[in-house]
């Protein structure tokens, strides 16, 4: 039904506003940190950039999954969903590494406004990635159980729409946090 895709579309629009507020908070405090950690002196854009590539790649794989379903290629559907999950998990792993590195250096959410805005923004994004991973795992389970006959499935389309959104948010977040500080 068109209903499902429409509600996911509006839901994504709503979520965009939520992220917009977090980004605005980050932007508002960018440059107001006079001493202590900032994006420029405590983040590593290269490592995070590499992990980001995994997330960006996962947008591609979920698209391939949808394409396989349209071609009624059930094996490749499962393979590509699995690939998406793995790529997303690698990204989350990277974020975990980054966070634990920062926390070891005593850069936390309560350290200063950079810590506050950075952890909130990346944290909520990571949370959305995790929710996406859970949904993708459910999708994989259903696919393994042979639920999707193709060529169309609202579940696959809606979840991949959401996944693209999570990905798109990261493009913006990455630009605002990392590129802005290092370019």
């Amino acid at each position: 039904m068109a209903n499902n895709r429409m509600i996911v579309g509006f839901f994504i629009a709503s979520e965009s506003i939520f992220f917009l507020m977090l980004i605005l908070a980050y932007v508002n405090f960018h440059g107001s940190v006079t001493d202590g950690p900032t994006a420029a002196n405590s983040l590593n854009p290269v490592v995070t950039g590499i992990f980001s590539l995994f997330l960006f790649a996962s947008s591609f794989t979920i698209w391939l999954a949808g394409k396989s379903l349209r071609n009624k290629n059930h094996l490749m559907l499962k393979v590509w969903i699995l690939a998406t999950i793995v790529l997303g998990a690698v990204f989350i792993f990277g974020q975990g590494l980054e966070w634990s590195g920062l926390i070891e250096k005593n850069i936390t959410i309560s350290r200063n406004v950079f810590g506050t805005t950075f952890f909130t923004l990346t944290g909520f994004h990571g949370f959305h990635v995790c929710v996406g991973l859970i949904m993708l795992s459910l999708l994989l389970g259903l696919a393994l159980a042979g639920d999707f006959k193709g060529p169309k499935s609202d579940a696959v389309e809606c979840i991949s729409l959401y996944w693209h959104f999570v990905d798109g948010v990261w493009v913006v977040v990455f630009s605002v946090i990392y590129l802005w500080a290092f370019l």
């Binding site: 979520e15 506003i17 959410i109 309560s110 406004v113 506050t116």
Partner: peptide, 21 residues
């Protein structure tokens, strides 16, 4: 509503985790 949802989240982070929004 997402505007205030985000603001509530920040307020809760301030009071529960010591964030400084």
């Amino acid at each position: 509503i997402p505007i205030i949802t985000a603001a509530f989240a920040m307020m809760l982070l301030d009071s529960l985790l010591g964030a400084t929004f």
